[in-house]
Design a protein around this nucleic acid. Structure first.
Lengths: 219, 219
DNA sequence: ATTATTTTATTACAACTGTTATATTAATTC
DNA sequence: GAATTAATATAACAGTTGTAATAAAATAAT
């Protein structure tokens, strides 16, 4: 187990400064590292047990690292949620390759679901924050902002599809958009809470079929 | 402001013993009172800030009241969640009056949603516990148990409807049941998080229409 | 090479936590 | 009404928390 080269021991702690990068970028990258350590603690111990000390310990460092990069715990928490939402959104946008039509709507829905490990992680943290937001008006507002944004995105797609005649003219877009969002949140939530059950009963391909059938029901 | 009768002051603290009831029932009733105080604290301050002291303060009493009725905090938390789930389930079962057919399924879905204030409260607590369960295997298991129970209930209804020929024969009951549960959870979650928005856009009657249209889509 | 800046460590503090033991008061039982 | 039990109060405990101040170390800038 012990290598003749002692350098191997030091390599465990990867120091970012070994790579030369502009100041601001290194700073931001370090904030992300702290944030990702926080994700791990949240998944393992729960959001309410994710103390500054626990995060520092996860990094094999002391609390000063965390406090150096975040004004206070509220700022840290807000950033963690912000980062999760960014990841969820950009992951989704990347997976939506088709630019128009019903297929795009299918992709939008399907790519929002936590069907791979990364998505599962992000959704788990998100669920933890949803519960954490109860009794915290600022966090509730953050959730509402994102929710309304998602609504606008889906509603806009539906509107185009309706004008194109790709979906039924009698559909109430407000209702259909909210329903789609509810479906995504509901499936995401249940996937997070009962991962094993879903892994047993539902392959990603099966979800693709479900989504396709659902969207075809709108035509 | 001061009344000639000093007795008025003491009446603020309602002592349960003034009403004569069997021992066990009084004991249980007191547990419920503590639990409901906990609900209020959870809604106001968040689940992670719901300390034994905060609950006692909500009751205008001291911590000994809480510790006298619950072995420790884990037992208290488990009981709170249990009570919430019971309330959600029995409220729903009471609202489902029709015994058979498609209408029963409609009622099942509709009555599960938080469309009145009580339901809103119960769903809010439930959402707080869902987030709280991340990183707590015992709570996750409790959620899974209830989720599977709900699944069996919906799936059983669908099976009967399919045998009766009330819904399409080609429907995959596993998929449809999970979809219905996802819809309920998704709408419930969004109702809790953005109550105002939904109150503006969706009346309970509108949800009834949505539900009816959805269920009719299965026929 | 020296200085300045950034990053990390150490320490201390007051507030809060769950738990426990003990005391006091109220209610019930006999 | 005395004895027993239940309900509530008080106080102390050790552990954890966020925050802040200060010091040391590492890196960057000059």
């Amino acid at each position: 187990m012990s290598s003749p080269r002692q350098a191997a021991d030091q390599s465990r702690k990867i120091r970012l400064h070994e790579v030369h990068l502009p100041k601001q970028i290194k700073h931001d990258a370090r904030r992300i590292e702290v944030t990702k350590a926080a994700w791990r603690v949240i998944m393992r111990d729960g959001l309410d047990r994710t103390s500054i000390r626990a995060i520092a310990h996860e990094l094999n460092l002391t609390t000063s690292v965390v406090t150096h990069y975040f004004r206070d715990k509220d700022a840290l928490m807000a950033f963690i949620l912000e980062t999760i939402n960014d990841h969820l959104d950009t992951r989704q946008q990347r997976s939506v390759t088709t630019q128009t039509g019903i297929e795009r709507l299918e992709q939008t829905i399907l790519s929002a679901l936590p069907l791979d490990e990364k998505g599962q992680t992000e959704w788990t943290i998100w669920v933890a924050f949803v519960g954490f937001a109860i009794g915290r008006e600022s966090l509730l507002e953050a959730h509402r902002r994102r929710s309304r944004q998602n609504f606008l995105s889906i509603a806009a797609q539906l509107e185009v599809l309706q004008k194109q005649g790709s979906i039924r003219q009698d559909l109430d877009i407000l209702i259909e958009a909210k329903t789609i969002l509810a479906l995504i949140d509901g499936f995401g939530l249940n996937l997070v809470l009962d991962q094993e059950q879903f892994a047993r009963d539902f392959s990603p391909e099966k979800f693709a079929v479900i989504t396709r059938n659902y969207v075809r029901g709108l035509t």
